[in-house]
Design a protein around this nucleic acid. Structure first.
Length: 266
DNA sequence: ATGGCGAATGCAATTCGA
């Protein structure tokens, strides 16, 4: 089973790039973030023509997530509220950042974690609150009996110094590297989820996002913020996890490139 | 580099991204 994650920075602008990549990828489930389109306007046809089922949760201009899958989704859930209930989630489902479904017994949770803006801004505190709700969401997902989970997406956090071109200290106050963010993510992973990429690669300097500015891609000044996290049995069964830099080289690319994990379900 | 690019909105200039 192949699962991929890709922040496409507008599915309408990136429609052809995603279609062409998918046609040659043999991916079973593709998780998209930053689709930036309301559901009725989502360009479903090119992907359905490739044989994929399309599940979307979008909004105007910002955010938005989607799942493409070879097999139909089981138990599709949108946002946090389908799992935790609207009173618990409060305002944290207003932005469309989460969609999940089960395929081949694997619970695929597709996330677009808030960027966080500047340090100590309202957006930064929203990010920390959102990660706190994600912890409850994963806890409840496990409690519901889903033991095999692939939680993936754009986490907007570099887990450690290897995952950013120029390592930062807390004094730099660079959002995406702050201890509070890394600890909030670690608290989610503490339920038993592990970074599939790090099963196969311990080197730094391998990234999934590069700023459009300052020739960042050419100079490989990027961050690794797009992750796939697996529960123990899936982690053991993973046979590869790779970042495909090729789509980042194309004209009018997303600033992110896809990451794929392959799991031998036996 | 308190931001060089790019997308969306909506029709010029602002907001957002990490």
């Amino acid at each position: 089973m192949k699962i991929a994650t890709w922040n496409v920075n507008s599915i309408r602008t990136r429609q052809d790039i995603v279609r062409d990549w998918l046609a040659g990828s043999e991916v079973d489930v593709l998780c998209l973030q930053e689709t930036k389109v309301v559901d009725p306007d989502f360009p479903r046809d090119p992907f359905e023509k490739l044989g994929y089922h399309v599940y979307v949760s979008g909004q105007k201009a910002y955010n938005g997530v989607a799942l493409f899958s070879r097999q139909p989704a089981e138990n599709l859930s949108v946002g946090f509220a389908d799992v935790l209930g609207a009173p618990v989630v409060a305002d944290l489902d207003e932005q469309k950042r989460a969609i999940a479904a089960t395929f081949n017994g694997v619970r695929v949770v597709n996330l677009y974690v808030p960027n966080g803006g500047d340090y100590d801004s309202d957006k930064y505190h929203y990010k920390l609150r959102w990660l706190g709700m994600l912890r409850q969401y994963v806890e409840q997902t496990l409690a519901a009996g889903d033991r095999d989970i692939c939680m993936c997406g754009d986490f907007n956090i570099a887990p450690d110094d290897r995952d950013i071109h120029t390592p930062k200290t807390p004094a730099d106050k660079v959002v995406g590297t702050m201890p509070a963010e890394r600890e909030a993510l670690a608290a989610v992973l503490n339920f038993g989820l592990a970074d599939a990429f790090r099963k196969f690669e311990s080197a730094g300097g391998i990234f999934s996002w590069w700023d459009y500015r300052a020739a960042s891609f050419r100079r490989n000044r990027g961050w690794r913020i797009d992750h796939l996290y697996l529960t123990p049995e899936l982690y053991e069964a993973a046979t590869s996890c790779a970042i495909d830099v090729e789509p980042r080289k194309l004209p009018k690319p997303s600033d992110h490139t896809p990451v794929t994990v392959e799991i031998d379900l036996g």
